[in-house]
Each structure stands twice: as structure tokens, then as C-alpha cells.
Amino acid sequence: MNPIIIWTVVILAGLGLVLALVLFLVARRFRVEEDPRIDLVEKTLPGANCGGCGYAGCHAFADSAVKASDLSAHYCPVGGNDVMQKVSDILGFKMEAKAPQVAVVRCNGSCTARPVINEYDGAASCRVKAALYAGDTACPFGCLGCGDCVAACEFGALSMDPATGLPVVDEAKCVACGKCVAACPKSLIELRNKGPRGIRVFVACRNTDKGPVARKACSNACIGCGLCVKACAHDAITLENNLAYVDFTKCKLCRKCVAACPTGAVHGVNFPKEVNNG
């Protein structure tokens, strides 16, 4: 055989062996002792590293959960109750179930309801736009439409609806991590209980202007008339600063408020079709 080939093989093999040895020794020498449960917990987690739990990532969550005395400060919104049950089992804690939540956009000022009064020409960012001025519609509270929430969502659950100019939440994909809530400079997105079969009622408006002003800016605005408050038999709706708010912990989903609202600002979603018709 050609001696060049032999030498090449020998040298390369030798080099590989030496380097492997170095790697082995270094790994040995600088090994960090870690609670093995951290690894176990981390493997149970979804691994999305989204930060929805409030920690820097899944490893940080696991690390903190292992050291914690109970799991009151730890909840993985992505994994939900199933994953938290497993984590609780590993760590020997009692699991506290939470109702599944979903992101809800509280603005329904669509292009038709809320006419544009000037043309924004800056960077396509809601944060930049909000810092600059009141916005390109007469409603200073409404959606700015640049899609910061869409960009913030790591699960592809948000998209802009070109017809309305508003973001739409894909409930199947939304894990209620809260990234969009933080991203919206107008605080339009709220995490609300998903409700039975996704049925829920909420006020899709944040305008606190007086009725006529709000109505002039947007035909879909909550005008603070209080009809929904009167219609609610369960004390679930409060009116503050000319704006109604539905408390999802008290709402019994009767939809009397939806029918009572003169501007259509109170939304009932995912109700079965036949009930809708009747």
C-alpha cells in the first residue's frame, strides 16, 4: 500500500485520539454538579423557551422550580395543566390546576368603523408609532395595526387581518404566554379564561373617552352607556371611565349584554351556531 495513505491514516487517527482525550479530560475537570431533577423537569417542559412563565427560558424555569418551596410562582402556560402535573410529580408538590387562557384583542375598530385621518409613514412598529403620536385614526386608544403583537408571538398564533386591519388570534395555537400582551403599546391584548368550549364574552374596546367622542372616532366603540351593566344579572360587568369591562370569573355567558350593546362593542365568541340564530 502507498505509504502516504498509511501515514495519513495513522496521523489523522492519532490526532483524533489525542483530541478526544483532551475533550474527555476537560469535560471531566470542568463538570458542573447540578441537581438531576432540573434536567428531568426541563425535559418535561415544552422546550419553546418562550419566556411566557416569566423566566428566561425552560432551563431557568426548571432551575427555579427545583429550588422553590412550592409551585405557586411557577406555571408553564404553554404546557398547561398536563405538564405542570408532571412537574409537580417530579418535585413532589401538590399541583394547582389553572383554567386555560387565551389572548383576546380588545379593539374592534376595523378600517370601516374607524376611518383613517392621516397616513403613518414611519417604521412599521406599533411602539415607534405610539411614541410618535396619537395614531392615524381619531381613536387614541385603538389598535395601531403595525403588528408588534404578531412579531412577538413565537407560536404563530397571531396574524393581521387585512380586511379589518386588526390582529386575529388563532385559538388553537395560542398558549397564553403573554408575549403579545407585553408587546402592545396600547395594552389592547388581555389573557382571559378560554371558557367552556372556547365560549366567552368580552368588551372589545379600550376607549375611555366620553360616549359622543368615542362614537365619533369609531362606530364600534364602547360609549359607556351602561346598558350592558343593567342587562347583566350576575354582576359581572363594571363601568369605569366610560368603558365597560366583563369580569370573566363572574360571567355566566348568558349573552344578554351582547344583545344590549348598541355599538356591538361587547363580543360573544364561539357560541354554537343554532343558538346564535335563535
Partner: peptide, 8 residues
């Protein structure tokens, strides 16, 4: 008329 608005 809708005038343009942008940062400087």
C-alpha cells in the same frame, strides 16, 4: 386630505 405623519 390625509397628511403623512412620521418621525423625523
Amino acid at each position: 386630505m390625509a397628511y403623512i405623519v412620521s418621525p423625523n
